[in-house]
Simulated scan of single mutants.
Amino acid sequence: MVLNRLFAALMVMVLTAVQAPAFETRARAAFVMDQGTGTVLLSKNADAPLPPASMSKLMTLYMAFEAVQKGRLGMEERLPVSQHAMNYGGSTMFLDTTDKVKVADLLRGIIVLSGNDACAVIAEALSPDGTEAGFARLMTRRARQMGMTNSTFANSNGWPAPGHRMSMRDLALLANALISDFPEFYPMFAEREFAFDGRAPGNTRNRNPLLGLGIGADGLKTGHTSEAGYGLVGSAMQGARRVIFVISGLDSARERAEVSEQIVNWAFRQFSEATVARGGDRLGEAEIWMGKRPNVPLVPANDINLLLPVLAGDALPAEIVYRGPVEAPVAEGQELAELVIRPEGLPEIRVPLVAETAVPAGGFVVRLKTAALVLMSQLGLGASTSAAGAS
């Protein structure tokens, strides 16, 4: 077998493409992705495990939503407040040990008020051993199952602790899961105010600086500690497009707000989604070995929708790569190749290509002819070993 490379045009092929506009951010680490296409628009120290501060509360929320969805926790259920939960400082709901708080209020207390105590109450309720530490171990295990390989939790709320770390890519993956898995709960992240029992008049407003700016922002969570700096896991939707971004390590809440707004505007203004090929379009052919036909058209199974720089024009450099000749029989729809698309300034994109039609194995005449061609090639007679089909 040899590695064949066939070139295919998408629309009108040209040799140059406009580079995606670079975005320089003051954030220590950042990750920006288009949710619909999965295109990574910006990655800066995205896989470094860093202190996530309150942004790690999103993992507690994910597990709480999951418990509600599976019936292990009820939104109207009231949970007790332990001394451990009450002792948390920082952003809190000002809970005390005489309280029994509805799960719905605790969830809003985490999302809107960033309540450290509310996280601990949820954690102790869901923990295998009734402790926050036990829940943190469960968080780490669940994160690994979800593909978050650079996340380790020491508590439920992001309180500074040795080894409590998440990467920006992991936080974006978590944000995407929250949006996709819990559409019934996600609107809570856009709530701008929650006054719990009148206890904390100074802590009723959502700290997300993008809510209400008219740019489609609807989540998710801010974070700040002296070690982590100021950060935000954000998402915004304009039209049918959604952007998810994570930033960390900024010097002030004002800087966080400025950078976040800049990222959202850049992601929507500088990129647009385009259909570069339709499902079933013939983009090339694969050579067939000992089949009733010498080749088979290669097509995408579905439309190929890409996010591209708005100035990139109508063409892309693309290459079909497959290992061939492909031995018959070949089934219709069988994956045979990949279309490798390399938009300038963006990560390489690989799209599976499948056989347009079935190609049965050839009969005796085809096998005999193929054997003869191979023999002639080995004898140096110049014959091609291409698996020609027989009528």
Rank of each mutant, 00 (worst) to 15 (best):
G71Q: 02
E24G: 12
F94K: 05
A387K: 11
P294D: 12
E132R: 04
N206E: 08
S54Y: 01
E319F: 10
V18N: 04
A8S: 10
V259L: 12
R165T: 14
L10S: 09
Y230F: 12
E319N: 08
P347C: 14
A240K: 15
P160M: 10
T25H: 13
D34C: 11
V246Y: 01
L50C: 02
L250Q: 01
G229W: 08
N208F: 07
V296L: 13
R108H: 08
G363H: 12
S54P: 05
G216Y: 01
F189T: 00
E132T: 01
M168E: 06
D170Q: 12
G212S: 13
P343W: 11
P297N: 06
A371S: 12
N295D: 10
P360L: 15
N208V: 04
A175I: 07
E335V: 03
A358E: 03
A133Y: 03
V32I: 11
R278L: 13
E344W: 08
A118I: 00
C119E: 03
A315C: 14
V264L: 07
H84S: 15
G214N: 10
G90S: 07
E258V: 06
S248T: 13
A267D: 01
E344D: 15
K292Y: 14
A46V: 09
G284P: 04
G223C: 07
D218E: 14
A195Y: 08
V359P: 01
E124N: 03
A267I: 06
L220P: 00
E356L: 12
L375C: 14
L126I: 02
P21Q: 15
G333I: 04
A372S: 13
P209F: 08
M237A: 15
P162G: 15
A143T: 02
A337L: 09
F135T: 00
A9S: 11
S56K: 03
G249R: 05
A64N: 09
S56C: 08
F194S: 07
E335P: 05
A53K: 03
L126K: 00
M63T: 03
A312Q: 05
E124Q: 05
T140Q: 09
V14K: 12
T275V: 11
L174S: 00
F271G: 06
S252Y: 01
L3T: 10
S54V: 06
L58V: 02
A328M: 09
G380R: 08
P128Q: 10
A123P: 00
G36T: 04
L79F: 01
M237V: 10
E193N: 13
R169W: 03
P201V: 11
V264R: 00
L316A: 07
A177F: 02
Q145C: 07
G74H: 03
F94M: 15
I244F: 08
P160K: 13
G147Q: 13
D96L: 10
V101G: 02
K102W: 02
L126Y: 05
V121I: 03
F268I: 09
V310I: 14
P52Q: 04
A20S: 15
V326N: 05
M11G: 10
M13G: 09
V374F: 09
L339R: 14
T98M: 13
M86N: 04
M93W: 02
A355V: 10
P80Q: 06
R192M: 12
V321K: 09
S43F: 07
